[in-house]
Amino acid sequence: MTDSAPAPLRSMPDDWRRALAVVAHPDDLEYGCSAAVASWVADGKDVAYLLATRGEAGIDTLDPGRAGPLREAEQRAAAAAVGVRAVEFLDHRDGVIEYGASLRRDIAAAVRRHRPELVITLNHRDTWAAGAWNTPDHVAVGRAVLDAAADAGNRWIFPELAEQGLVPWNGVRWVAVANSPTPSHAVSAEPGFEQGVRSLLRHRTYLEALTAEDPETYARRFLGESTGVHRARFDGAPAVAFELFSR
């Protein structure tokens, strides 16, 4: 006997106006879903980015004091490449982000500021699809995003936010998890693919430290492979896949 084929990926909902993408590090969105973001922005949707860290511990050959500002600048350039103008950083420590009330409160505050209908994050599960172990930062931030989407609408959780003028926002309708090992929905990668490549290339310092391969060759190959893996579940088209949680 053989296992049944995975179910087709459904199209992501598009009846929304504002999204907030929350991830741990600079480059998480560029590896995860920037081609989808490019398409959404081109369609007139408002997307903002929130980074828990500045990625200061991500380059072995650079002291964190130098790496943090450099990676922040590269992230802002990467966001601009797909039309995203609002980029915020929370200043949690790269590599040792802790899941808990402090992280949930920071994310809930951002949700109340931006008032999104869609919240996007990166894989919060222990492993990636290939069985590789995920990092603690991704797990902590992804889980906190799922919880903070609800926290943002509850006036009795983090009441200090209301005292700061951040009134509850219960308008989050979905949380979409990019690079999940169990995706359920997808967006065509074709319209935003070239912008996605350019966006990943803005992390040039990081890429040059990561691989000896030519950065553009690497970025184009990686994104081509990662968006092609779900073709069979999305009418043969390259796709940016998400696990979608409704609220």
Results as ranks from 00 to 15, higher is better:
residue 170 N to V: 02
residue 171 G to P: 05
residue 215 P to A: 11
residue 140 A to P: 09
residue 218 Y to E: 10
residue 92 H to I: 13
residue 54 R to H: 07
residue 164 Q to K: 13
residue 201 L to F: 02
residue 239 A to F: 08
residue 169 W to I: 07
residue 33 C to N: 09
residue 207 L to R: 08
residue 139 V to R: 15
residue 204 R to K: 02
residue 27 D to F: 11
residue 139 V to C: 07
residue 107 I to R: 00
residue 34 S to D: 12
residue 103 L to G: 03
residue 108 A to H: 12
residue 109 A to T: 04
residue 102 S to I: 04
residue 174 W to A: 13
residue 17 R to D: 06
residue 188 S to L: 11
residue 141 V to T: 10
residue 247 R to L: 15
residue 123 N to H: 14
residue 102 S to C: 13
residue 208 E to N: 06
residue 60 D to M: 14
residue 59 I to W: 01
residue 50 L to C: 10
residue 168 P to M: 14
residue 11 S to G: 13
residue 234 F to R: 01
residue 215 P to M: 10
residue 170 N to A: 12
residue 201 L to A: 03
residue 192 G to I: 10
residue 95 G to H: 13
residue 143 R to F: 06
residue 34 S to A: 14
residue 186 A to Q: 03
residue 45 K to I: 10
residue 236 G to V: 10
residue 82 V to G: 02
residue 195 Q to L: 10
residue 74 E to W: 05
residue 54 R to S: 13
residue 161 L to I: 08
residue 173 R to I: 01
residue 199 S to V: 02
residue 183 P to Y: 02
residue 99 Y to R: 07
residue 197 V to Y: 03
residue 71 R to L: 06
residue 229 V to S: 12
residue 86 A to E: 15
residue 178 A to I: 00
residue 14 D to I: 09
residue 108 A to F: 08
residue 247 R to Y: 12
residue 227 T to M: 09
residue 162 A to W: 14
residue 214 D to E: 07
residue 114 H to F: 11
residue 218 Y to I: 08
residue 200 L to T: 03
residue 17 R to Y: 10
residue 215 P to I: 03
residue 66 R to C: 10
residue 151 D to P: 08
residue 39 S to Q: 13
residue 83 G to R: 03
residue 125 R to N: 04
residue 18 R to A: 11
residue 25 H to I: 10
residue 35 A to F: 03
residue 36 A to K: 02
residue 84 V to W: 04
residue 71 R to A: 06
residue 237 A to C: 15
residue 229 V to M: 13
residue 12 M to V: 14
residue 182 T to P: 10
residue 205 T to G: 07
residue 193 F to I: 05
residue 89 F to C: 00
residue 110 A to L: 01
residue 46 D to K: 12
residue 141 V to G: 12
residue 163 E to Q: 15
residue 51 L to M: 12
residue 94 D to M: 04
residue 180 S to F: 11
residue 229 V to R: 15
residue 19 A to S: 11
residue 198 R to Y: 00
residue 110 A to P: 02
residue 66 R to P: 01
residue 104 R to K: 14
residue 122 L to D: 02
residue 86 A to I: 12
residue 97 I to T: 06
residue 169 W to V: 02
residue 102 S to D: 14
residue 83 G to A: 13
residue 12 M to R: 05
residue 75 Q to Y: 03
residue 231 R to Q: 07
residue 17 R to W: 08
residue 11 S to D: 05
residue 247 R to D: 04
residue 120 I to L: 11
residue 88 E to G: 12
residue 199 S to T: 05
residue 50 L to T: 14
residue 13 P to K: 02
residue 2 T to I: 09
residue 113 R to E: 01
residue 65 G to R: 14
residue 21 A to N: 13
residue 228 G to P: 07
residue 220 R to C: 02
residue 106 D to R: 02
residue 177 V to Q: 06
residue 239 A to S: 02
residue 205 T to M: 04
residue 5 A to L: 15
residue 18 R to P: 01
residue 148 A to I: 11
residue 182 T to Q: 13
residue 173 R to P: 01
residue 178 A to W: 06
residue 145 V to M: 04
residue 203 H to V: 00
residue 100 G to I: 01
residue 184 S to G: 15
residue 60 D to C: 12
residue 150 A to T: 15
residue 21 A to R: 02
residue 169 W to M: 04
residue 240 V to G: 11
residue 114 H to M: 10
